[in-house]
Nucleic acid binder design. Sequence first.
DNA 1: TTCTCTGTCTAGCGGTGCTAGAATCCGAGG
DNA 2: CCTCGGATTCTAGCACCGCTAGACAGAGAA
Lengths: 191, 191
Amino acid sequence: MSTQQRRERERARRHDLIVTTARKLAESEGWDAVTTRRLADEIEYSQPVLYSHFAGKDAIVAAVALEGFTELAARLRAATRTGEPRAALEGLARAYLAFAEENPALYDAMFTMAVDLPFGQDDTPEPLRDGFQALLSGVAQFAGGRDPAILTEVAWSALHGLIVLSRGGRLPASGREARLTLLLDQLGAAR
Amino acid sequence: MSTQQRRERERARRHDLIVTTARKLAESEGWDAVTTRRLADEIEYSQPVLYSHFAGKDAIVAAVALEGFTELAARLRAATRTGEPRAALEGLARAYLAFAEENPALYDAMFTMAVDLPFGQDDTPEPLRDGFQALLSGVAQFAGGRDPAILTEVAWSALHGLIVLSRGGRLPASGREARLTLLLDQLGAAR
DNA sequence: TTCTCTGTCTAGCGGTGCTAGAATCCGAGG
DNA sequence: CCTCGGATTCTAGCACCGCTAGACAGAGAA
């Protein structure tokens, strides 16, 4: 039985190797550079090996994205710890923006590329749920009479919009801080 | 000289044919279906003809996007005509959302795919400028003490975020109206 | 009628994601 | 220790992609 276990252990290691290599490659050279040939070359195996671990390239991207959701959730949780509501909201927003800025390729995989991750459904993976919950618990503090879930969704949308429009050059880099301040003011104001 | 003019006229017609065919194809079967072979087949010419009109596939997508910006600007201008500020803002937002919903592929070309359109620069094409101006003139009415440009950028980001997150299934379809209402309330409230 | 030049097409290059079938390795049984 | 069987990995190839060189045809001028 021991050899069986060793095999599985090695398989798991290689599985992780594929995911981390894909992520590293995407982060350093962009997702366009992550081809199955290049990825296979990087992990020093042949292409078909990838397909013994994942259904296809999309599944690899999805695995990277999942890793991202775990990390994002952790960072958001860490940022919610502040006491005062407004500061908590600001910390949360800044943590979210920082994550997106520090891991652009990862963020893309999470929110722009991988469409096949089941989001608000019964079989939604834990990390996806957790990320939204982290946002929610931070936002809910000063929801006032407003629906905390709706408020969270709107806040999230606004942050995501800022990120993706800034990245594409649609928004000037200069107004970054001013936009964030205004957004926080508007969200914070009870109606 | 007449034959020369006829030639140019025919070229212009074919140019438009390529753009409208690409758009129609993208809208009906998604951008993945828009390959140079398929597109050439659809307009009943061979592939190289495409390259005598456009530098590459990206340029075709950019041309489609440009068409989209013209239409979006027109719709936003039409929606700003309302008198009362809050109603104008709502009309503007609804027009924007409706445009994105009715032309998903076009919207993608404008805001997700074509990265090579120069946005906030000196050589920014007229339609791009016009679209933002239309938003700005609508939003500016109730900016109060706030910077109208910044407010516009934030409002735009929020709308864009709502659209793109909804499309990917990240946001439940159910809360759509509630999110819009809350967003309008928050943006409308002077701080 | 012949020549030229513009415009179009056929054929092909190097790349992509993915896979069938050959080859190889490794542990088990004689 | 050797041989066999099954799992694992690789080589080679498919159909497709964006793009282009060079052959070809057809219209207008001389």
